[in-house]
Every structure is written in C-alpha cells, then in structure tokens.
Design a protein around this nucleic acid. Structure first.
Lengths: 216, 216
DNA sequence: TTAAATATTTAGCCGTGTCTAAAAATTTAT
DNA sequence: ATAAATTTTTAGACACGGCTAAATATTTAA
C-alpha cells in the first residue's frame, strides 16, 4: 500500500490533471502547501513505483495504475462522506477533514460493505459522482450555473467547491441539492447573474456561479 | 495529537498494566514485536509528553493523562467494532484489524455521533465494555468460565481473547454472546471442564475456559 | 557475595518525508 | 540570441520511528 503521503500526492495529481494536461512541480507544491523541493523528491519516488510518468523539468502525469489508485481514494472519500452525512447526521460542510482521514483506511472488504450499507450511492452529499469499484465514473452531465442562458431552468446538481465556507454560503442562500432555479438576468459587465430560487431572486458573482453545477 | 505509533504504545501499556503493576521494556517489545531498544527510545518520549511515569531500568506506568488517552483509544476501537459488526455485517472475527486502523481517526465529534448512531452501546461485539466519553468503564462483573463451580449455570458474556482463530473456534463450538451454559464436569487433573451448551456436552481446556467470561 | 545470565539503555545507522540554500534547466523578455 | 526571471532539481540537514551492536544495570544462581 502507498503511504498516506503518497496517496495525498496521487489525489492532487488527479485533481490537477482534470484542469491541465501535465502537472507541474510548483502546482503540486502550492496545492499541498509544501516546498517544490519536497515535491520533486516525491515525484521521483512515485515514478519509481509507476504511479506517474515523470521526466525531470517536464512535469508529471498519472499512469493507468496511478489513475486507478486516485479513483479508489476518491471512491473511499466520497463513500465516507455519504456515510457521515446520511447516517451520522453531519452537515455537508463538516465532513471533508474527517473523510480525508478515513479515505486512507486500507480494507477493500470494508469499502465493499460500506457501499452496500449505503445502498450503492452514485453521488456524494455535494453531488460529486462516486467512482465504482473498478474506477468507472459516471458523467452526470452537469453544467456550471454561469453557462446557462437567460430564462433557463434547472436544479442544483452539485457544488464543485467543497470548502466549509463556500458550503456555508450555499446554506445561507438556501441552495441545496435538488433546489430548482431559473436564470432571470445575466449581467454582461461582470458576468454575474440573477437567479430565482425558492421564489426569491438572488444575485451571484461569476466566481460563485462557476462552482454551482446544474442539471437542466 | 499523539502519533499512531505512540497511541499503539499507550494501548499496550494499558493492556499490560491490567495484568502486572509496572510494565517492563521487554514486555512491550515482545507484544509489539519490536526491539527493546526501540521501546526504550519511545518510553523516553512518552515520559517527556507525560503519558507515562518512567524511571530508567524500572519500567513504565501510565499517568492519569496516559490512562485517559488509552481509554479514549479503546472507546474508539470498540465503537468502530460495534459499527462494523452491527451495521456493516462483518463477522466478529474479522473486525479487529480494521478497527485497529479506525481507532486512530482523530475527531471527537465523529465519535460522539457514532456513539449516538449506535445507540450508546455498553459493550462491543466480543462483550468487552466500551469506555464512556469521560473514561468511565463499567464493571460488568463477569467470571472466567474456569472459575465456575460444578453445576453452575450462566450465559456467555464476553470473549476475552479476541484473535480471529479463537473466535472461529468459538463459532465452531456454537458459542456466542448470550448462549446459556452449565458446568457439568470439572476435571481436576488438567483443570479442563465439560459444559452443556445447546443441549450438547462439550469439553474445554483450561486455557480456553479462561478466555470465556460468564454472567452467572 | 560474586560471577553469570538477563534486561535495559546508549550509540550509531537507516528509510521516510519534510525543509533551506544553492545549482541547474527552462522560459520569458529585451 | 542572449540576458534575466522563473522553475525545478540537487545537496545537505532534521525529526520520527524503526534497527543492530555494544555498553551498562539488574537479577539470579553458584
């Protein structure tokens, strides 16, 4: 089994690869709040264990083995979050740090049984898809709220940014998974928008709207 | 928070103190399968952090702080075991290693909520008492089976030795928590005994009987 | 009560995963 | 096209938690 630390790197690699193609040492360092030199060392080790393809000065990319490892960690993370919210009655903004610890527990049988107990959920409390046992990840076909057109209707499907403060802001706005919304104004100037929700109209910055995923 | 490794030492210290008064370096080493020199090093650190009272060459003893830490780890271990068996449907011989990992997860809130979810259990799947939030440990007043008198009746209250193979042996004998038994013969020669269980008579060595706790 | 056996500690080494400072490679800008 | 800026790697250090081998204390036995 990869150490906790290595698992953390693999997770970040996966996350950053979603955005870019190849991931740079500095990107990882700033994400993990570590020094580039530490990252450089670790990349060498991960390459040696064939979790990544890595050429000095050229950045890193997960191998098949690496992606599969990443998906298994994400699967564990999201299943635990689901357990914490649905059964232990945590709020959706309280579960991240705990799941961050639980995701490193090493037992396939445990995860199989947890999955069964939770009734094979397809997404976690933030609406993110839960990878399957073999790494299958369902594309739920969601659209960032800021990409909707004027007068489009939809419902909240997922919150992309899972930080406590962002989720608490969502709570304050009355936004939860499944809530119906309608785009009633789009402001050219700053790309912000006005939506109708719970029959009230609220204003959202582009920054915020980007992090709210909609099912149309 | 104490490291995982330190928590392991504290747990062993607690366990060994139940049997002896002061715990020797070698006892710990053989229990943890480590070298005495490593234990010696660690005892120094634990003493520095005031988890133990330690005098060179004289052995170690948990302080109040140490005992309270030990009880909190045991509490977590047993609550998780209860979850694994009662909700995830693990067998009682499969949960030890997984609970060994889960017990190091650091979140008081998590344990509070788990305790609530489990409906505040007083004992775990092996019949061992679960320490309370503040370290209260209920004495369930159990008697080792080998200390019962001829013709005494009782029911299985706990299995002291929680190794998979011992628990599997219990399964084979039809012994589970709550099973009624009666002592029908005590053999002086080797301290073994004959008990009636499920209306059949079975023979148990002293070694085995010592590890079965009875509620009379 | 002293020598032998045993238990414990110390000294020094190693791998892991971090760091700082310096060197080297790459990228950007003139 | 080369100098400057930036990024990345290397070198060397450190804390942690193990280890082996040697030294030292303690206990046991002659």
């Amino acid at each position: 089994m990869a150490s906790q630390s290595k698992e953390d790197y693999i997770k970040v690699l996966y996350k950053l690869e979603q955005e870019n193609k190849v991931v740079s040492t500095n990107d990882i360092a700033s994400f993990l709040k570590m020094k580039a030199s530490s990252v450089s060392d670790m990349l060498k080790k991960l390459a040696m264990e064939e979790y990544i393809d890595y050429t000095k000065y050229k950045g890193a990319k997960l191998t098949k083995k690496g992606v599969s490892k990443a998906l298994s960690i994400i699967r564990k993370h999201r299943l635990w979050e689901t357990f914490l919210v649905n059964h232990l009655k945590f709020k959706w903004d309280q579960v991240h740090d705990i799941a961050e610890q639980l995701e490193h527990i090493d037992s396939d049988q445990l995860i199989d049984k947890l999955d069964h107990f939770l009734n094979y959920p397809k997404s976690d409390p933030h609406g993110d898809p839960i990878p399957g046992k073999n790494g299958e990840i369902i594309n739920l076909g969601h659209t960032p709220l800021n990409e909707l057109n004027l007068m489009d209707n939809g419902s909240i499907a997922a919150i992309k940014k899972g930080t406590p403060s962002f989720l608490q802001y969502m709570d304050k706005l009355g936004i939860e998974l499944g809530t119906k919304i309608k785009v009633i104004d789009k402001i050219e100037f700053d790309k912000s928008l006005e939506i109708k929700i719970h029959n009230k109209s609220i204003h959202l910055s582009q920054e915020v709207a980007q992090n709210i995923l909609i099912k149309i």
